[in-house]
Design a binder for these strands. Structure first.
Lengths: 317, 317
DNA sequence: CAAAGTTATGCAAAATTCGCATTGCTCCGT
DNA sequence: ACGGAGCAATGCGAATTTTGCATAACTTTG
């Protein structure tokens, strides 16, 4: 029996529609259907009567709802109480990361059960690339997690930092779609055609440099006309969905929207760039939990051919 | 988060030993270790302090124990209440099965999430082969689940029954082990050597016939001296573990004991026989839930080349 | 009456969990 | 003091579970 099934059930109890409830729970309708059935198998009684339209709860189901709500509440309260009880005894590890990585990468990464037991508490500052660098340099955080590329500006490599690769991603060019599912904009257009462009802020010069690399590989110059600028990838994505232009975004950020037909990748592989996800820390920093995390990451990074740079010769600006 | 993790934790809290707790929970120590770590990840706090020997609970762990006990109790109470609430509305399906199948096969089989939602209530009568046959014939149960073999006596095939294959097993010959792990008895011995034999009861003549088939394939007659008789496979197994003799037992019943070194298979493949697990019902019986189950089993049995016999011409004795 | 919406199922792929083998360590018995 | 036993964690491949896609069978809606 899983907590997720209880939460699934509360959703179907509220919506009385499997498809709607599934969407709310961010899983497909068939998977949702199976989960509810699995819950009913565990309970040993039907909770949902499917012979009506929409479905309704059985008498067992009606009994189940309030008790289920109470149990879910109690579970999370117990978890919070335990965290608070442990709070004084475990060290906080602090991170800075790009928004995208904070939203889409970090939660799954930090929750991996093979992670060392510590850290179990973490704090996250999100910002653009320069903010992450500044936080790390000035000691405001223990680790910074950013994108990186061997051909990118060696902003962090030149400083007293060391890094490990902990994942990979890909910058892809996407466009919103019309009612027929075709992209609103494309790059395979006559030379000089104006293409509305959703750009990263000037402070995200790092990504700007990478994007320039991609553009320079295209068969001819593009007339990209900046119509919006932000350092929030999520905001840029929503603008693209709204049909405002094209944007380079990390795949991790758009793969769901692409799968759901809200966005479409354009320009193919040539208009994309594989990038690394790297974790940085200042050379010399030592904390027990930080060391445990670093040691674990060093072992797993050996499989990902991570660079481990420790060159203190050049101080950062 | 899974209920199993809560139960795991209560076990480690009681024993303070991962290996012992794992054994009690019927999983391996590494799997147990990972589960506890997964629970701690979900909680977001260490519950076990591993720096002491034996381990002890952290302050969060001490807080967790009573609340965890209460939640597990509430979960099972909720399940029971729902079953009772549903009881009046769902039809009971009754089964008769051999002890072995009732213990080792039926719980996992009936709990398969792909099963139709009904039946969610079942009643089980366990007995030897003849008792199962009698229950089915006289209408005391809806279904009988037994072993079968094409070369076995066609006890049920001759009656107004139909059947489907729902699984397979193997009769294997096992012996207890000595302190060195070697079998106490073997069949590859000089002719005439007396071998203590743990036999099925006379009423389990069906299995006796199958076992005779196996024996007839051995390269020479064996001097099997019956020292114990029972229709309870589990009892025969315990007698073998205790070193009282050899016994043919279904693999499903002994595979764990063999893996744990309490028993050892002897005589190899030649001294074993693959058998089918079949479900029987009387031809013509109809109940909504029974039909749903049968329809589902018919579909899945198509992959297992199940025989479906429906010959009412010959009444059973 | 056709189209849309609904839930369930088959199937293959993806993800998770498992057990085995082993490591690195601590404890215990001699 | 030392060797063996016991302990918990980890790497790895296998086994199992869960998932999403495609689709079926059905009901509802326009």
């Amino acid at each position: 029996m899983e907590l997720a099934w209880f939460e699934d059930f509360l959703e179907i109890a509220a919506t009385r529609n499997f498809s709607t409830a599934a969407a709310s729970r961010n899983i497909s309708q068939p998977a949702f259907s199976r989960r509810i059935k699995a819950l009913e198998q565990w309970v040993g009684a039907e909770l949902i009567d499917r012979s009506t339209y929409p479905v309704h709860l059985t008498s067992a189901g009606n009994l189940f709802v309030p008790r289920c709500q109470e149990m879910v509440r109690d579970l999370y309260r117990l978890r919070t109480d335990c965290r608070n009880a442990a709070g004084a005894s475990s060290r906080l590890l602090t991170f800075a990361a790009l928004h995208t990585l904070a939203i889409y990468f970090f939660p799954k990464w930090i929750s991996h059960p093979e992670m060392p037991s510590a850290p179990v508490r973490s704090s996250m500052h999100t910002g653009d690339f320069l903010e992450c660098v500044e936080h790390l340099s000035s000691g405001k955080c223990d680790f910074a997690i950013t994108y990186d590329h061997p051909d990118g500006p060696p902003v962090l490599e030149g400083g007293p930092f060391e890094s490990l690769q902990i994942g990979r991603d890909r910058l892809v060019l996407v466009s919103g779609v019309g009612s027929t599912g075709a992209p609103l904009f494309d790059v395979d257009v006559p030379e000089g055609t104006r293409i509305p462009y959703l750009a990263y802020s000037w402070s995200d010069g790092y990504l700007g440099k990478l994007i320039s690399l991609i553009q320079s590989r295209w068969r001819r110059p593009l007339n990209l006309s900046i119509v919006y600028q932000s350092s929030l990838a999520e905001g840029l994505k929503q603008m693209a969905i709204a049909g405002q232009g094209v944007v380079w975004l990390p795949q991790i950020c758009v793969q769901k929207s692409v799968a759901q037909g809200e966005l479409v990748q354009i320009g193919g592989h040539q208009m994309s760039l594989e990038i690394e996800i790297r974790i940085f820390r200042r050379v010399g920093t030592r904390s027990r939990d930080g060391e445990a995390l670093w040691r674990y990451l060093s072992r797993t990074a050996e499989q990902a051919s991570g660079r481990n740079t420790a060159d203190p010769a050049l101080a950062m600006r």
